[in-house]
Design a binder for these strands. Structure first.
Length: 607
RNA sequence: GGGACUGUAGUUCAACCGGUUAGAGCACCGCCCUGUCACGGCGGAAGUUGCGGGUUCGAAUCCCGUCAGUCCCGCCA
């Protein structure tokens, strides 16, 4: 049926008889001669149709519409010297058609143009509705291949490092904490439910107990939460777990893994080791646990300088246990007008959207003079002012932006302002043009954080992370005391402000595991019921182990320069978690529900 | 659950502050054209302005509701 790929034809094929199959990318009818660009997955080549080679064939060629599937038999030949197209990989040659067979015609209008020349801003709704057409387009084809190369690079590296891929169940049990589960009713066990895995976490730990030692899986995971540009209800993780390795060894191995991916996909040699930052330092300097380190604009804590000043917004925040922090924007006096940092301005609004009440500012002038509102200027002593300028690194021309309030809100607001300013000031490239890869390990996360709503501690990562041994102490009797404030042996890999993956060393001692579950408020009895199988396994010779998981969709998104993981997934869902192509989810027959012992309580009013 | 933006021909967009018959490129149909490659020329067809209601002498435009898509907040160990 086919002897060559369209895009593979070169000069050396001249004179050969060829058979090609593919889609009509577009055609140019000159009356006496017709040129058809034929496209398959290898690329495209020009077919030349001459009426002297058959009137019937010529008539067929005259009515070829774009995206018609055809088979062409003919002869490859060197193009005339004045007709060579340097813009095409196959521009040296053309195929003179001897016969053209229409394998499948296009009926009606296409919902959007496919040819790369027409690739304009097509509504995503249409692209998703007719995803098979969208996948023919250059951009999506490139992204899917890039995704394939990425996963291949992962598998190649892990194979060489002695990992084996093991599949874990997709039908598993629901566990407390974490995201909302997708549930599957059991027909056989009436009234009972499976949950789709949010990650293979427990299974991979049990594989370690099972002596696998080095496991990985390209695993589909499910979380029933609201969607974002970088979140889908089903997504893919590169899931890994390994025994008898400390944190340092795990991080080193993973840097090598990431480097091999970037080498394979981008041809870039990443500098190693990756920088590391403690969670505490990340929060202090960037206000977030996943800082974008491609630019400065770091946060500077000035709480101690302003705690006694007469400006109540500042001193009051500190007195209430909060903080006052600032961002120094070099050249900000020139670049950012007062309108933008006052109420209603875009910079001000960013802070406000993150929950901040407002945004105070100081403009630094020549000779250490400052421009600001009277309430600040009149209440700032000369030595405090001098210290402020020194500490923030401000020089004439610098704009200082302040957040004041409870520490979490200040961090959140200034993090947002920082990211906004970086884009506005052109400190980062657009996603498509980015060529800067600032990897960063964030380590030493706290084990727990306080959930004010439920008035209890919650695991920051998950309740199987091993605590830092020094923080925990050797005496099990003291664990109830030491555990809540202990750091975890956990680590996140951050790239340009996005969390690519994370993991931890795990608890392999059942007593400690029970203690952690109790600390997050799970009664002992409940802990046994939910996780008894894990604790039982830990008591049968569980090796020290740890691991991590990467978001494959996000990695591919960054490698592809895309802004949404939907563009890295063949058949993604909309923000309403609906598939526009199949119209899933959809209703089912009452009989199906009966068999599953399920009754729907959904009503029209509810919808 | 909340906030914002978008929805006009098959498609990408335009249509001023509410005012003639809602326009243009591409695609489509017809005719012409033997070296184009985003071919070119001439002509044609194509619209429930997402849907429903309201204000008005008059609505693509203003208001209310609703549906769909996107971005964000909450949520996502």
């Amino acid at each position: 049926m086919r002897s060559h790929g369209c895009g593979d034809l070169r000069q050396d094929a001249s004179g050969q008889a060829v058979e090609l199959c593919g889609w009509v990318d577009r055609s140019r009818d000159h009356g006496g001669v017709i040129f058809v660009d034929l496209r398959d997955r290898s690329g495209s080549v020009q077919i030349t149709v001459d009426p002297d080679n058959g009137a019937a064939m010529f008539a067929v060629a005259e009515h070829l519409r774009n995206e018609t599937v055809i088979q062409v038999a003919g002869t490859a030949r060197q193009r005339p010297a004045d007709a060579i197209n340097d813009k095409l990989a196959t521009g040296q040659v053309e195929v003179v058609a001897a016969s053209i067979t229409v394998l499948n015609a296009v009926k009606g209008n296409l919902p959007f143009p496919v040819s790369v020349h027409d690739e304009e801003n097509t509504r995503e709704e249409l692209r998703l509705r007719h995803r098979y057409l969208d996948l023919r387009r250059e951009r999506m084809a490139r992204n899917l291949r890039l995704r394939h190369s990425t996963v291949q690079a992962m598998r190649r590296f892990l194979e060489e490092a002695g990992f084996i891929e093991v599949e874990t169940p997709v039908l598993t049990r629901s566990t407390p904490e974490g995201a909302r589960d997708y549930l599957v009713p059991s027909r056989v066990c009436g009234g009972e439910w499976f949950a789709l895995p949010q990650s293979p976490q427990l299974f991979k730990q049990l594989l370690m107990v099972g002596g696998i030692e080095r496991y990985y899986q390209v695993a589909r995971c499910f979380r029933d939460e609201d969607l974002r540009a970088d979140r889908q209800p089903e997504f893919t993780q590169l899931d890994m777990e390994m025994s008898f390795m400390g944190q340092e060894q795990i991080l080193e191995l993973n840097e090598a893994l990431i480097a091999s991916i970037w080498q394979a996909v981008k041809g870039i040699e990443l500098p190693r080791p990756f920088p590391r930052l403690s969670w505490h330092e990340a929060m202090a300097r960037y206000g977030t646990d996943r800082p974008d380190t491609r630019y400065g604009l770091e946060l500077c804590d000035v709480s101690d300088l302003v705690k006694d000043m007469g400006f109540k917004v500042f001193s009051g925040a500190v007195a209430a246990g909060g903080a006052v922090k600032c961002i120094a924007v070099p050249g900000g006096n020139e670049a950012i007008s007062n309108v933008r940092i006052k109420p209603g301005g875009d910079v001000f609004s960013e802070a406000q959207k993150a929950g901040a009440g407002g945004l105070a500012f100081i403009r630094v002038r020549e000779g250490g003079e400052i421009d600001t509102i009277g309430a600040i200027k009149d209440n700032l002593s000369d030595d405090k002012k001098a210290e402020l300028l020194t500490r923030s690194g401000a020089t004439p021309g610098t704009l200082l932006l302040f957040g004041a309030g409870d520490t979490a809100t200040v961090n959140k607001a200034l993090d947002r302002v920082r990211q906004f300013l970086a884009r506005e000031l052109g400190l980062v490239q657009s996603e498509r043009q980015n060529d800067q890869w600032n990897f960063l390990w964030v380590v030493d996360f706290p084990m727990f954080e306080f959930n004010a709503g439920e008035n209890r501690l919650e695991a920051l990562h998950h309740p199987f992370c091993a605590p830092n041994a020094a923080d925990l102490g050797a005496d099990p009797a003291a664990w109830a005391e030491t555990l809540p404030t202990a750091r975890a042996q956990a680590y996140d890999l951050v790239l340009n402000g996005l969390e690519l993956g994370g993991g931890s060393l795990r608890i392999h001692d059942s007593a400690l595991q029970r203690q952690v579950l109790q600390t997050i408020g799970l009664p002992l009895e409940e802990a046994e019921r939910q996780f008894g199988f894990l604790m039982e396994a830990l008591d049968m010779g569980a090796p020290p182990h740890g691991g991590l998981a990467y978001g494959v969709d996000r990695i591919v998104m960054l490698l592809a320069g895309e802004e949404s993981i939907r563009d890295t997934i063949a058949f993604p869902k909309t923000q309403q978690a609906r598939c526009l192509m199949t119209q899933a989810p959809a209703g089912v027959a009452d009989k199906q529900l009966e068999e599953l012992h399920v009754a729907s309580t959904w009503t029209e009013e509810e919808g």
